[in-house]
């Protein structure tokens, strides 16, 4: 009996990784299955069982809670993950190429002051890399929240698009000559990914409005 109690306690500990809503509804049931499948005399969960529970918990916490039939919403969430990947690639590229940019700059202009280079790194490159890192986290957060169907997440994502588009437009208006070509390309790709994800996210609302209009007309 003590062995079974210990085993049950062990399973309960691993089940804590699951979302609270899932535990509330299914913990007793999953526990029943785990105990029914336990070997005679088993005192603690097997490592394979623990890994399986951990994997199940992570999958339940991270994967979108959107039915596969809702293709538009599923694709929108995937595009958000793509946005995170593009931002991450941009951040990694900035960090990985600082050295070669510096070398190239000093080769072309040997008299370039060190202090000015430090100012460029501190004033432009470092903030851009940090901003890209924050943007990665934001894209991932939006993918997670929209994957769970939170309405506020859709609105926040739309506002985020406004900020993104404004940033791109502002940069272009400030003078495309100072706007690096690669930077412009990344900004444009992100804006297009954002726009496509937003269109898919609001797909049903757009169709509903279009339907109302056509039926009214």
């Amino acid at each position: 009996m003590t062995g079974t109690a210990g085993l049950e306690r062990g399973y309960r500990r691993w089940l804590r990784w699951y979302p609270r809503t899932f535990r509330r509804e299914h913990e007793a049931e999953v526990l029943g299955v785990l105990l029914a499948g336990a070997r005679e005399g088993q005192r603690r969960p097997d490592p394979v069982e623990c890994l399986d529970l951990l994997r199940g918990a992570l999958s339940m916490r991270l994967r979108p809670r959107v039915a596969r039939a809702e293709r538009a919403a599923v694709t929108a969430v995937r595009l958000m993950y793509l946005g995170a990947v593009v931002e991450l690639a941009a951040a990694v590229t900035i960090l990985a190429t600082i050295g070669s940019v510096r070398a190239g700059m000093f080769q072309r202009n040997p008299g370039y002051p060190q202090a000015q280079w430090h100012a460029v790194v501190a004033g432009r490159l470092a903030p851009t890399a940090v901003a890209a890192g924050i943007a990665v986290a934001f894209w991932l957060w939006m993918a997670w929240a929209n994957g769970r169907g939170h309405r506020w997440a859709r609105i926040l994502f739309a506002l985020f698009f406004g900020v993104n588009a404004f940033g791109l437009g502002n940069g272009l208006a400030a003078g495309s000559a100072v706007y690096a070509r690669a930077d412009l390309a990344v900004g444009t790709v992100l804006c297009l990914v954002h726009l496509a994800a937003m269109a898919l996210l609001f797909d049903q609302d757009i169709r509903r409005v279009a339907g109302h209009r056509s039926s009214a007309g």
């Binding site: 899932f22 299914h26 999953v30 299955v33 785990l34 499948g37 394979v48 069982e49 399986d52 529970l53 951990l54 994997r55 199940g56 918990a57 999958s59 339940m60 994967r63 809670r65 959107v66 039915a67 596969r68 039939a69």
Partner: peptide, 17 residues
């Protein structure tokens, strides 16, 4: 099938109807 895999699949199957 282990419990984690089973309930992960059942959750997805319920969501998909």
């Amino acid at each position: 099938l282990r419990a984690g895999t089973l309930y992960s699949a059942l959750d997805r199957l319920r969501l998909d109807g």
